[in-house]
Nucleic acid binder design. Structure first.
Lengths: 340, 340
DNA sequence: CTGAAAGCGCTAACAA
DNA sequence: TTGTTAGCGCTTTCAG
């Protein structure tokens, strides 16, 4: 039980400074303090000064928890993403965070590890903070996730995938189309013995869509993936290097390999460089993401560049706006590079 | 003004479901609902079932804002870091986040962009959420930051630097020592014409300390940095590549270059590979961080590996613990690699 | 085992 | 321009 409001002069009260203490120190009412601190409502010069110096003197830091409860507006935007080490998501975060800050919001995030059930739990726990918006990766979610999101009344942005309409705002591009373009590019360069290196497609749904688009486009050209090395692990440079080694051991006559992303492709490129495999003459390599490391490699990686920062910015902006629900396809760009 | 507690049967009340609604639906008191939801206090099987099905039926999501205000325990841990795209920090985050989740805490973060004044503002805004702990990069902060942190009463962990004692918990290693070891390693391999490539040392304070340690150790061996290329920009592969190019143009007879970090060093390595500069015979390269991309490059990068994930885990654990204030030096490891 | 009631610290009418 | 007051939705005594 708190004695605060019963007796202001109780001696043993080691609690944190509140607006009440500031008001007493400044000899004004609590609401005046509140007005000064929020810069709203008319307050006399005098009162303002007294409040400000009381704040400084007491080292008062407003309690946003209480403020939010009273005003119902948390100024918190939640980001629910599959991974944080994957540069795709850290780029999105890196762009979204300052945008949100500029809009007076604070970013909170949670990592699902590519698990839709974990995502469901995290969405629920984020919603418990009554955020003003939620940004979540992809458009695939559990039915309960969708129901919670729909029922929450907060703005939702689904990002990095824009093939279908979503719950509210969708910002991304077509992964299927990205896969398709990559296949067409390889075919246009005369590649016919094409392999694939990927990680867990049932978890990384967007990589799965690229794979699908890739296979479709090959089929349209009367071709197919000759051999594939798919390891259900987190994608990494190491995985790409080892996977390509295994793939080539099994099927040495491939003339091109499509990787699920640039991390894997860079690993593949390193394998080739370390083993004297001529790229692209003997073997062509194609990645996806358009990472710096690929662009700047001694032999620039052929890949598809995605506007990740733009997506982060746009999602952050829209989620804080009054814009109608919409799907924003920001597209992607095929980078020819020098490995195909 | 809310009518909720005046009249439960008002028609036009489109507000979110509260514990009050659940209590009514389940025909129990609000406190019973609270007990069931928090799994605390004795509740009869019957009441529990009724509450649970009411929760499900109404799609109730508890309001943590209110819960926190009432119980004074936000279960929020704030992370204040300089950058999110820098793998060092995303690794720390990636390790800290699940550790915090396991401890029943939620991670919130803010990015300072290596600016101590921005850090001060962000610390204040984080403190306003009354987190149970704060994890912040480095031990250098503005006086006001330190005062706020000290006065907040929450646990503080300062990470990635363990040369001095800090406010509360410190988890890291000596950057000066890391720089020193790197210099000794180059000297031990007979390098004498040593150059340096770095980014903004006044902002990246830890890079500055490594540079200092490096120079000291060279001086101890009667050597010095022959030429340096320091560009006050964000470190990147591109910057490393371009900087090395400029450095070599100016001082072609260098036999080794120390880079402020692996991103820069990888850029340097790419420059050498693309321009036929023999590494390490003609030019030795030394980085810092121990990134995957360096370890897996065709020629593994010589570098210093730092236990970033361990730091993230440890800081998260300690900040949630009752352990006494302490400095944890988790050390680092020199990786010989093949570029020196 | 259960419910009523008193706050948590702040904001937002409203009255002065 | 200012202070008073009634909540925001939940937790936590305290009686029953």
């Amino acid at each position: 039980m708190g004695f605060r409001n019963c007796d202001d002069d109780v001696v043993d009260r080691p609690s944190v400074t509140t607006i009440h203490d500031v008001a007493r120190e400044a000899h004004v009412g609590e609401s005046t303090v509140s007005r000064v601190l929020r810069g709203q409502g008319a307050v006399s010069e005098k009162a303002r000064d007294r409040v400000l110096s009381a704040v400084r003197k007491l080292g008062y830091v407003p309690n946003r928890i209480a403020g939010t409860l009273a005003s119902s507006g948390s100024r918190l935007v939640a980001l629910v993403i599959p991974s944080i080490t994957n540069i795709v998501f850290s780029d999105v975060l890196a762009a979204a965070a300052p945008t949100l800050t500029a809009l007076g919001q604070q970013a909170v995030f949670a990592v699902t590890d590519y698990d839709l059930d974990a995502e469901e739990r995290l969405i629920e726990s984020m919603l418990a903070w009554r955020p003003s918006g939620i940004i979540v990766a992809g458009v695939e979610h559990t039915p309960r996730s969708i129901a919670m999101l729909r029922g929450s009344g907060v703005r939702i942005a689904e990002i990095l995938d824009a093939e279908s309409s979503g719950i509210d705002i969708v910002v991304g591009f077509s992964n299927t189309a990205a896969g398709r373009e990559s296949a067409r590019f390889l075919l246009s360069r005369g590649k016919r013995r094409i392999g694939y290196v990927g990680h867990d497609l049932t978890r990384d749904l967007r990589a799965g869509k690229r794979h699908k688009g890739f296979c479709q486009a090959l089929a349209d050209g009367d071709q197919r993936v000759v051999d594939a090395e798919i390891v259900p692990a987190l994608s990494s440079i190491e995985l790409g290097r080892d996977s390509l080694a295994r793939l080539l051991e099994r099927t040495p006559d491939l003339d091109a390999v499509y990787f699920a992303n640039d991390d894997l492709a860079i690993g593949g490129l390193f394998h080739c460089m370390a083993n004297g495999i001529a790229v692209p003459d003997r073997l062509a390599l194609m990645g996806y993401n358009g990472l710096d490391v690929g662009r700047l490699a001694p032999r620039p990686l052929s890949t598809v560049r995605t506007p990740r920062r733009r997506i982060g910015e746009l999602a952050a902006t829209l989620v804080c706006s009054q814009q109608p629900s919409q799907v924003c396809d920001v597209g992607f760009e095929l980078i020819e590079g020098a490995t195909v």
